[in-house]
Design a protein around this nucleic acid. Structure first.
Lengths: 124, 124
DNA sequence: CTGAATCCCATTCGATACTG
DNA sequence: CAGTATCGAATGGGATTCAG
């Protein structure tokens, strides 16, 4: 299969490389690290969530940003959306396998931040 | 009314927790995942860099954002700034131990993104 | 209940020009 | 070289309204 290019810049992984502006990497990175992206992924990492649950759990997010971030992730194949055509409607969001891989790599970061945020913010 | 939450601590790491809007965690998370934060940290993870090197290596970043992101990280104790009072001036940036801990947790994420970005963006 | 659509303001971001 | 100053543009995000 012609091997996805080492072109993506003959680099040994990210380490050692540059960060071309036009790289798909940038797009995905921006989605994941978007203002609410990490929080949504971490919430879903703990299991499927309904719209309202996400809205409540992620304090401060507006309906607009929750909707648009979820749609972006759905298009990326990171989040799965399952709507039940009932009344009232019920929609569940969950991570796809791909989303789970990302979330798994986000957990160590968040745990570290959780442990150190107080010190950092208070200038220690 | 104080209410200094031990709440923030009462949880078993992030896993299982909520994400209070006023939590220092949010502040740090927003710094790290700011538009250029991750790229700067990963560039510095490979070693000390001069201003101009960072500017060249991180394609697309404006001088303004490079300056302000670096200052934020410096205030957080994540990046160390060392200026030599020479002419022309020379300023080196490097990760503090704290910054290295963060960067170490960013590498697995970036490596995964590097490996999968093409598929995601092209809709596979 | 789960959104989509619209309006509008605040903040962020980027390009350019300028300085020690 | 390493920034700062400024300004206009883009984006984020709140509030409200509407719909299935």
């Amino acid at each position: 299969m012609s091997v996805s290019f080492e072109v993506t810049r003959a680099r040994p992984g990210v380490s050692g490389g540059k960060y071309p502006a036009d790289c798909p990497t940038r797009v995905v990175l921006n989605h994941v690290t978007s203002r609410w992206g990490v929080l949504i992924l971490l919430a879903l990492e703990q299991g499927s969530r309904r719209w309202g649950e996400l809205h409540r759990e992620i304090e401060g997010i507006s309906e607009k940003m929750l909707a648009s971030t979820l749609r972006t992730f759905e298009a990326d194949g990171i989040v799965h959306r399952e709507a039940q055509p009932t009344i009232p409607p019920r929609v569940d969001y969950s991570l796809t396998p791909r989303g789970q891989e990302i979330a798994a790599r986000l957990l160590p970061l968040m745990d570290w931040i959780t442990d150190n945020a107080d010190d950092i913010v208070s200038g220690r």
